[in-house]
Deep mutational scan, measured.
Amino acid sequence: DVEPGKFYKGVVTRIEKYGAFINLNEQVRGLLRPRDMISLRLENLNVGDEIIVQAIDVRPEKREIDFKYIP
């Protein structure tokens, strides 16, 4: 289970104008929005990159997770 405030290693699987989709595993995916990136820009991410993200909002009923990147 993903818990708000905890850090997780994930893989960038898709990049859109509104953010990057990060997979923690095959069943768990969330969104990293540009506003939640500190010292990292969306255009510097590539599909396949491994990054450490912090879960900031977890909505299991909608199967949605918002992430934050903190270097």
Rank of each mutant, 00 (worst) to 15 (best):
V2D: 03
E43P: 05
I70W: 13
E50L: 15
G5K: 06
Q27P: 03
I51M: 06
S39C: 13
R59S: 06
E61L: 09
Q27S: 14
V2G: 03
Y69L: 06
P71E: 09
P4E: 11
I51K: 00
D1Q: 15
G10W: 15
T13H: 06
L31R: 03
E50R: 15
T13I: 09
R59Y: 07
N23Y: 11
V58T: 08
R29W: 13
V11Q: 08
E43T: 10
R29V: 13
M37S: 05
I70Y: 12
F21E: 05
D49I: 06
G19A: 07
V58P: 04
E43F: 08
F21Q: 05
Y8V: 04
R33T: 03
G19L: 03
L32H: 01
E50V: 15
P60I: 11
G5F: 09
V28H: 09
G48W: 08
I38Q: 12
S39I: 10
R41C: 09
R14G: 09
I65F: 06
M37L: 06
I22K: 00
E3L: 14
I15Y: 01
R41W: 10
I65G: 03
K6L: 11
S39Y: 13
E16P: 02
K62G: 07
N44K: 09
R29D: 07
N46I: 12
P34V: 13
E16D: 08
Y69Q: 07
R59A: 04
T13L: 05
L42I: 12
G5M: 09
I15D: 00
L40M: 11
R14A: 12
G30M: 04
S39A: 13
I51C: 04
T13G: 07
V53T: 01
D57A: 15
N25S: 14
D66R: 13
R14Y: 07
Q54I: 13
D1V: 15
R59Q: 05
Y69S: 03
I65P: 02
I51D: 00
R59M: 04
R41K: 14
L24E: 00
V53E: 00
S39G: 15
E16G: 09
F7V: 06
V11D: 01
P4G: 07
R35T: 11
I70V: 14
Y8H: 02
R33H: 05
R35F: 07
R63C: 10
D1E: 14
D49R: 05
V2A: 05
Q27L: 14
I56T: 10
G10A: 06
L45H: 01
I51P: 00
